[in-house]
Amino acid sequence: MNRRLLFPLALLPLLAACRSHEVLPPDQYNLSGTLYGDWGAGPRLRLALVGSGLPNVFTNNSAYAQNVVPSTGSAASRSFGFDLPSFPNLVGIYQVIAFDDGNNNAKYDIGETVARNRLWLIYSPTDTTTPAVNIPAQFPWAAGEEAIPSMSVKRGWNVYDRAQRLSDSNPMAASKITGYDIYR
């Protein structure tokens, strides 16, 4: 192959990686909600998708597109948006957590201030029945808890509210998730 042709082709991945990512209003992401609570002065708030793929492969990823915006009228609430991956690395159970990125490395590290809710995001490539799953030790704030009982889920993302009884509508399949509120 011609060298003059190879050089421009080699630059394509670099150019694609350098393009800017547009920051959207929170409701334009496929998961959105409100973050409530006091984070102190000048927090570096970020969101991360954390969870456990089956069988027990820990995920901690904050590299997805996101936006946290202070709400008007209250310093204790912020709107946020987060893009869930179309195909996460593994079938499993996940949560989007909020954290104060104290060391500014864009990744949740044990010891950083964190907040979460009682909603689990379950990803499945097919309609299926999941086994019961306990939270692994990598989640120090909830290790050993039953994350999900055995349940029927649909293909794609499903939302399971642990505060509610298992029913025909819990869990529910969702392509856009709103009201995923997180309290601190």
Rank of each mutant, 00 (worst) to 15 (best):
P149D: 15
S86P: 05
W157T: 05
R162T: 15
G73V: 02
R165Y: 13
S169K: 06
A10I: 08
A173V: 04
N89M: 03
N61F: 11
A137E: 15
V153M: 05
R162N: 15
A41C: 00
V23P: 01
T72H: 03
L15G: 06
Y29L: 02
E112W: 05
Y64R: 04
N61P: 00
L49H: 08
S124I: 07
N61T: 11
D168G: 04
L35F: 04
P55H: 12
N60L: 08
I148H: 07
D161A: 09
Y123R: 09
S167I: 06
D38S: 08
A75S: 12
T72D: 12
C18Q: 10
N60E: 08
H21C: 02
A173S: 13
G40Q: 03
D168Q: 06
G102M: 10
S77H: 02
L35W: 04
G40R: 01
G179V: 01
E146R: 15
V159N: 03
I122N: 09
G53E: 14
S32H: 03
P88T: 09
E146K: 14
S32A: 11
M1Q: 02
Y123P: 11
G42Q: 09
N56D: 15
S74Q: 10
L166H: 10
T128I: 12
Y183N: 13
L166Y: 14
Q138F: 14
T126M: 06
G102F: 01
S124W: 12
F58C: 00
T59H: 11
A115F: 13
N60T: 01
P85R: 05
L45P: 04
D27K: 00
T72W: 02
L15E: 07
D100C: 00
V133R: 08
